[in-house]
């Protein structure tokens, strides 16, 4: 986790065109990740965590949505690129080669009529130009590395011959085959049972210990993020509301939404007591975000929250919160307001 950022995202804005108007899915998201670092991204459904990742991977179909603003500078092996400005053809050299991807449902990401060995080898042939024999032996190595027993036989099996946990291991093998320096994992263990999830989390820790692999791990489960991440982004309403080192975030949460979210996990309060809940429901995102997205559910909201949108403001080194209220001191903070979104690119 040293040195220069591997990926620097600045002011990402993503919009979708729905039947009844524009959905403002991502409203100015900025963050970075360094080599070897694990960045946890948490939030509830509709908070924008998956759309952020799809935007970075060029996976927003132009028929339904568009990236309206922002940059995402990635230090690729061949030099720096802006992920938000690549053509589909250019992305072909980034996805798989520079950035590995793992999604929630391995069965829909794997090709059902191709052996897993060929799916791994395909990535090696395309990105590294390896021959058939060499890519096959590398595929076997990769399967062994992700903990598949008897890899020299399993390499010729089809995805349906693997269990859910094993398929997710295969996905990780494909994602990492060409040696990317960043892996984006979107809810990779959500569909798995808890004992299998523990296996996959242990595997990712092992793989990271062996290399400088940076991981962005998207999850709705704060426990999973607590166990894996070095740093955490909390998303709400298509914005980052808090960003902090993992210990700091869990011990000293600053944003009222983060506090509410942590308090509503069973087991964090007193046994037998009522769970803390956040009243109301998340914002609809049908309007441009001009005020705090959490204001109408927030017990600390002040007048300013309904007039201006708080920007992510540093509280201490490596801890920022997008809130005008200093929750510990019970007074207003000199938060920076987000004036307007930069449009056009």
């Amino acid at each position: 986790m040293t040195g220069e950022a591997l990926l620097t995202v600045d002011g990402l804005v993503t919009k979708f065109d729905a039947a009844d108007g524009v959905v403002h899915a991502i409203n100015g998201v900025s963050f970075d990740i360094r080599p070897g670092e694990t960045l946890g991204v948490v939030g509830e459904s509709g908070s924008g965590k998956s759309v952020t990742m799809m935007s970075l991977l060029g996976l927003i179909p132009s028929s339904v949505g568009r990236i309206a603003a922002g940059t995402a500078r990635y230090r690729a092996t061949s030099g720096e690129v802006d992920l938000l400005k690549l053509s589909e053809r250019q992305f072909g050299r980034i996805r798989g080669r520079e950035i590995g991807m793992v999604f929630q449902d391995p069965i829909s990401s794997l090709n059902p009529v191709m052996t897993v060995g060929r799916q791994i080898a395909e990535s090696l042939q395309r990105h590294l130009g390896l021959g058939r024999r060499e890519s096959r032996s590398r595929a076997i190595e990769m399967l062994a590395r992700v903990g598949i027993a008897d890899p020299s036989h399993r390499v010729d099996d089809y995805p349906h011959e693997f269990s859910g946990g094993m398929r997710q291991r295969v996905m990780i093998a494909i994602a990492l085959a060409a040696g990317p320096r960043l892996m984006i994992a979107d809810e990779p263990t959500t569909a798995l049972d808890v004992t299998v999830q523990a296996q996959i989390m242990a595997l990712v820790r092992e793989l990271q210990a062996e290399s400088e692999l940076a991981v962005i791990w998207v999850s709705h489960d704060l426990g999973v993020v607590a166990g894996l991440a070095d740093r955490v982004l909390v998303m709400y309403g298509g914005t980052i509301v808090e960003s902090a080192g993992v210990d700091d975030l869990f011990e000293n949460p600053q944003h009222p939404y983060t506090r509410g979210l942590l308090a509503s996990i069973p087991g964090t309060g007193l046994a037998g007591s009522r769970l803390a809940s956040i009243p109301g429901t998340p914002p609809s995102l049908q309007h441009e975000l001009k005020l705090c997205p959490f204001a109408d559910r927030c017990s600390h909201a002040i007048d300013r929250c309904a007039r201006e949108r708080p920007g992510l403001t540093p509280i201490s080194a490596d801890h920022s919160s997008a809130c005008f209220w200093d929750i510990d001191a019970s007074r207003q903070r000199d938060g920076v307001a987000v004036i307007a979104q930069r449009e056009g690119m």
């Binding site: 859910g164 808890v194 004992t195 999830q197 989390m201 704060l222 426990g223 993992v246 942590l262």
Partner: peptide, 26 residues
């Protein structure tokens, strides 16, 4: 094993924790 696999929303406990990792799937 099941209880030891449940992720806890506490990074320090998570790091210190001993897990019983089961082999394979159900």
């Amino acid at each position: 094993a099941l209880l030891s696999a449940v992720p806890l929303p506490n990074p320090k406990q998570e790091r210190a924790r001993q897990r019983i990792l089961l082999e394979g799937d159900v």
